[in-house]
Design a protein around this nucleic acid. Structure first.
Lengths: 293, 293
DNA sequence: GTCGACTCGGGTAATTCGGGTC
DNA sequence: AATGTCCGAATTACCCGAGTCG
């Protein structure tokens, strides 16, 4: 499944695992508090068992990652999105929340942007899970549990992002019959990384109510996440409502999602179509909504 | 670049947050009023959850809540659940996330238990919103947005609770056709306050998949949150599946929710029925599931 | 062997320790 | 009895050029 669990850990891995600086950890090693071995070149290596007993004796536990399933790279950049995608999906299917969280944070702290992580790891992983679900390789509850886990991770990022402007409100969500909460939440976060006060209204919203929301809050941008269409005729009709409302108010209408296939687009009025968070970011860069209000 | 919420705080941070001198804080730690851990070098570190419970038990006011990652204090010294319920509901309907968060945290830091807050504030508020929705006084999007906000607040509490045992796994969720995510999430949190490693599988799960989850994870408790029943015949049939599975494995089956009316109960096999989180807590106290595994 | 990422060791600034006193 | 302030010693975090790892 994941990498063969290494028996010896590097100081950085352990330092990050228990939330202290590398310097402190090195001092503890030199003082003999943690049993250490040395490589031929003099680098410290900490046996997993020594680390575990140190954590236990010191009561110094409570840290973010799971030392047990510690990913092999605790830090900068070495974790690549391609392998992360598989690791992440396996963790979700197995319900290993801590490991999944660690994969994502490794990528983020390693310099990957949220948009990259969304497009290259989370979205493909959820898509893969969906496919395996169709084949019967993954149970429904595994998919649902995966969604719960990802939602929690996304919430954490939302808390960690810098505070947004009070002015530039963006709202959006999914239409009636579409229960996919992750895509619209990722859109929300993507917009927030660009400084907008994005607020997802949630899932399965009647088109009339989406129009109400636009009328009431008058956002600088409105998005519709379309992962599933229950009734195409109703969708076309409802979409027209939104399009009219946003056109009148000169509010950009951004649309995307797995269900937006080409022949469907051709039946719809104009909107900004984005097939990835990367495209959404590029749109925002070229068309900053109401800058410096 | 931000980091995941740090779990251990330094005495200075906490002293600044509650507006006392570091000396006092150190004395309290040494007297055992605040649970503390020590670094290998002897420095005190205070777990977030320990700090929060200390504040709650001693009625401290927060001078600088942001240090702990908490919302700015609403200024209200003590809040009463009865008035909070209205304030909270109005905040949700208006989409004022910050204010809603303040109300809940004021109550929590003021000494109210999560269970009290769930039963007396959040659940009634959502129920009220539902009623106003039926009357047309509240738009669908206002209800959905409220759910999003509450979910985020609940998630913050999940992070702030003391870490749970690794052994006592409890799982649960809602059945097919039931999209209400808040009740099952509140059950999850309630169980976590009692030390169980509760994990909500999410919403709208086919009964067969719930059974799969029970078979795979073999929890010490299983809950079913029932806020809406689309097809009563299917529900009765599916419920029987769950009941059989849990009975064979001697796993307590806990059931509750707004849709569990009396005449429905009479058609179902035995289960633990709870009409509030308070009742759930009392059940757990009298029937602790598999203690000390 | 090259090369980027990581670790080494040591130095410095900032915190925290414990205790004593107001 | 409890709190806030001050102290030297110890601990921790951050920084750097040189060397090691994979």
């Amino acid at each position: 499944m994941s990498q063969p669990v290494r028996e010896n850990l590097t100081p950085r891995q352990v330092a990050q695992a228990i939330g202290v600086s590398e310097s402190s950890l090195k001092r503890w090693c030199d003082r003999g508090v943690i049993e250490t071995v040395r490589t031929a070149g003099g680098h410290r290596r900490l046996p997993r068992s020594a680390v575990l007993s140190f954590i236990r004796e010191n009561g110094h536990e409570l840290a973010d990652p799971q030392v047990l399933g510690l990913p092999k790279n605790g830090g900068q950049g070495t974790r690549v999105a391609t392998s992360a995608r598989g690791d992440f999906m396996n963790a979700l299917v197995a319900g290993q929340e801590e490991y999944a969280r660690q994969v994502i944070w490794d990528l983020y702290l390693g310099g990957h942007s949220l948009v990259q992580i969304f497009d290259d790891v989370i979205a493909p992983a959820m898509s893969d899970i969906g496919k395996q679900w169709d084949c019967g390789d993954v149970a429904v509850y595994q998919e649902r549990l995966g969604v719960q886990i990802v939602l929690r991770i996304l919430h954490e990022f939302r808390q960690s992002l810098p505070p947004v402007d009070t002015g530039n409100l963006a709202i959006g969500g999914t239409a009636e019959g579409d229960q996919y909460v992750l895509p619209t939440t990722m859109v929300e976060l993507t917009l927030r990384t660009r400084g907008l006060r994005a607020c997802s209204l949630g899932t399965s919203l009647p088109f009339e109510s989406l129009c109400d929301a636009i009328k009431t809050h008058d956002p600088v941008l409105f998005w519709l996440s379309v992962s599933h269409i229950a009734d195409e005729a109703a969708f076309l009709k409802g979409f027209q409502l939104i399009a009219n409302e946003t056109r009148e108010r000169k509010i950009p209408l951004v649309v995307g999602g797995a269900a937006m296939c080409t022949d469907l687009r051709s039946k719809l009025p104009f909107a900004i179509y984005c097939d990835s968070m990367q495209q959404l970011t590029e749109y925002l860069e070229t068309h900053p909504p109401k800058p410096w209000t």
